[in-house]
Design a protein around this nucleic acid. Structure first.
Lengths: 192, 192
DNA sequence: GGCTAAGGCTAATAGCCGTAGCTTTATGGC
DNA sequence: GCCATAAAGCTACGGCTATTAGCCTTAGCC
């Protein structure tokens, strides 16, 4: 039949569109194939590892997107301003495309590609943290704290875990203040 | 054939054992039924909503367990001591039974049972935070910050997102200090 | 002792993933 | 311009899953 001319990237595109519309549990090779206008087994020509590899590719793509957003938010800013912008960008991405963000933990074991993408994301955070005079092991501990706060808040927000009436935006502001304040007095790099 | 005498609680027990051993993606009605010594459709007599309801029941159970651990950790302590103990207990539970903790987000929409269980968990945190003189809306914002940090760190730890060589225990210590420090200067309950 | 309801079963449907093997389309070398 | 080859599509199939329908047997109660 007529060649569609798929590429692995296009398969991921279709998968992400499907996830955005119907959630991560709707991701199935059959529905991706239908959307791509192709029979299910044909996908294996482009994503040889099947569903597992597709999920891996999705995680890589989403991590790269997120890293891009954080990098954009950080450019031209420093200190508290940069941290605030990065955290807001993180939350905006996660809540703007919640299903996509939820696809992140569906990846199998972290592999080289995913590690590379995550490293870029961490790199943005580390760069911002250097504005506080942090380096050595302490910048890593601080970056992990930043990621924990950002991911925890995003993940719980998406899951609907914050059910009380209090304004979520205020919570986010408090959370950002918590972080920036703590970064100013972060243990300077001495002992391990 | 001979009655096994299953109850919904026992079905959840078997499901959790299976998750602990083989991970959350191995949770299938077929394998739970096999472990319970029963044919797959028989499970519907106890868990009428099928797999979806089983996942819901699992989330409720795990949330209750976690709330129990946090409550135990908090008893007899107050202030920084209590916050530290609660955060350590949270992380110990999550990393001690990682697959079980990962089963948490598999729940469908939060329903009454899950909301009740989560409310107890939040109640423990709120009680601890009152030791800092917080109340009104601010105690909620603070509790959300605590949950975000605890969940984010636990979730990323389990996922293997912290790949660098720096000691995770040190990161956790920094994170706890960040939190306690920030709680001491938390905005007192005035405006919204 | 018999009725009822609960808890088990088998059978069947529908959907999914993944493999095998065939066919067609492009493409590149001659 | 033609032909060989590899890539990209297809159909057919096997095996797993959830879920529903309908039957049978057990346990318990009046």
């Amino acid at each position: 039949m007529p060649r569609v001319g798929l590429t692995p990237d296009q398969v991921v595109d279709h998968a992400l569109a499907l996830i955005d519309e119907q959630g991560v549990e709707a991701l199935t090779l059959a529905s991706v194939a239908a959307r791509a206008g192709v029979a299910t087994p044909s996908l294996y020509k482009h994503v040889s590892g099947g569903l597992t590899e597709l999920r891996r590719l999705i995680a890589v793509r989403v991590t790269e997107e997120l890293a891009d957003r954080l990098a954009e938010a950080a450019v031209g800013r420093s200190g508290d301003d940069a941290v605030t912008a990065v955290l807001r960008a993180y939350h905006a991405y996660a809540t703007g495309r919640p299903h996509r963000y939820n696809a992140l933990p569906q990846a199998p074991q972290p592999d080289d590609d995913l590690t590379r993408a995550a490293a870029r994301l961490v790199g943005v955070i580390v760069a911002v943290l250097r504005g506080y005079g942090l380096d050595g092991p302490e910048v890593i501990h601080a970056a992990r704290t930043v990621r924990s706060l950002a991911h925890g808040f995003a993940s719980l927000s998406i899951a609907g875990a914050f059910q009380l009436a209090e304004d979520l935006t205020t919570t986010h502001d408090r959370l950002i203040t918590t972080l920036t304040t703590s970064l100013h007095t972060w243990p300077t790099t001495t002992a391990s």
